Amino acid sequence: MTARTTHLDPAVRASMQALSAAAKKGLGDPALAELVQIRASQLNHCAFCLDMHLAIARKQGVDESRLDLLNAWEEAGEVFDERERAALALTEAVTVLTEGFVPDEVWERAARHFDEARLAHLLALITVINSWNRLMVSRRIPAGSMEW
């Protein structure tokens, strides 16, 4: 597959990268940030983002079995703790918006594990990875591309 276009306004790219960095920093858990970004990218079928965030997660030492089972996190038993499960449930709810909103029980579950500031950063991270996914998938940027 070849990209439809690799053009992305430099100011847009810089702004989105800054938003991503701020959300990750505020969340305060680099491994969880990567799991969230990988899960959203799986749901959005973004090969570029999957390739990038899987590589980052591996560099951070995220266990390979956790990466292998992320697509089935709900059935993965003790592989993911309750805090991670809450973040992944929120990721799916925000990414898919099946019923047009995030269900209260999903939000409340996440709120039990994250204080208000960290929850806000988690939501920002989910939002920005979804934006990145849509930019990359729409433009058909292939995995591993150096031009995007």
Rank of each mutant, 00 (worst) to 15 (best):
T5Q: 07
P10K: 05
R13Y: 13
A14Q: 07
M16H: 02
M16P: 02
A18M: 14
A23P: 07
K24V: 04
D29F: 04
P30V: 00
A31C: 09
L32A: 03
V36M: 04
Q37F: 02
R39H: 11
R39L: 13
S41L: 03
Q42H: 11
H45Q: 13
H45E: 15
H45I: 13
C46E: 05
C49N: 03
D51L: 09
L54W: 01
I56S: 05
A57T: 00
K59Y: 01
G61F: 03
G61C: 03
E64A: 12
N71Q: 15
A72T: 13
G77I: 04
F80M: 07
D81R: 10
E82T: 11
E82S: 12
R83I: 09
R83A: 08
R85F: 08
L88F: 09
L88Y: 04
A89V: 11
T91G: 14
L97P: 13
E99L: 12
E99K: 07
E99M: 12
G100A: 05
D104R: 15
V106P: 02
V106K: 00
E108P: 12
R109Q: 15
A110E: 05
D115L: 10
E116I: 14
E116F: 10
R118V: 14
L119A: 09
L119P: 13
H121Y: 14
A124P: 05
L125Q: 01
L125P: 06
L125M: 04
V128Y: 02
S131P: 10
N133G: 14
M136T: 07
V137C: 09
S138Q: 12
I141Q: 01
I141F: 03
G144S: 10
E147P: 03
